[in-house]
C-alpha cells in the first residue's frame, strides 16, 4: 500500500502539473479537494479519473462513490487495491 501511495503521489504531481509540490508535501490522509489539502477542483477530478482508467484499468461505475474514493491519496490507493485490473 505504501508503495502505491508514493506512486500515486508522483502521478498526481505529473498529471496535474503540481509544479510547486513534492511527494513529501502531500499528506496521504489529507483531503485532495477543498480547503486543508491540495485544493484540487473539478477539472482535476476528471484528470484523476483518467489516471485510474489509463494506469490501473479502473472505471468508476457509480459516480455517487466519487466523493469517498477521491477523498485522499489513501482512499484512492485503497480503491485501486480493491479494484485493480491492470
Amino acid at each position: 500500500m505504501e508503495e502505491l501511495i508514493e506512486k500515486l503521489k508522483g502521478e498526481l504531481i505529473a498529471e496535474l502539473n503540481l509544479e510547486e509540490v513534492t511527494p513529501a508535501d502531500i499528506d496521504a490522509e489529507a483531503p485532495l479537494f477543498g480547503d486543508g489539502g491540495l485544493g484540487l477542483d473539478s477539472i482535476d477530478a476528471l484528470e484523476i479519473i483518467l489516471i485510474l482508467e489509463r494506469n490501473y484499468g479502473i472505471k468508476i461505475e457509480n459516480p455517487a462513490q466519487g466523493k469517498e474514493i477521491f477523498y485522499s491519496v489513501k482512499t484512492l490507493a485503497e480503491y485501486i487495491t480493491a479494484n485493480q485490473k491492470k
Partner: peptide, 13 residues
C-alpha cells in the same frame, strides 16, 4: 496515443 479515447481536459480547455 489514446486512440481517440480518455483525453485529458486541461490541454483541450
Amino acid at each position: 496515443a489514446n486512440s481517440e479515447r480518455l483525453l485529458n481536459p486541461t490541454p483541450f480547455i
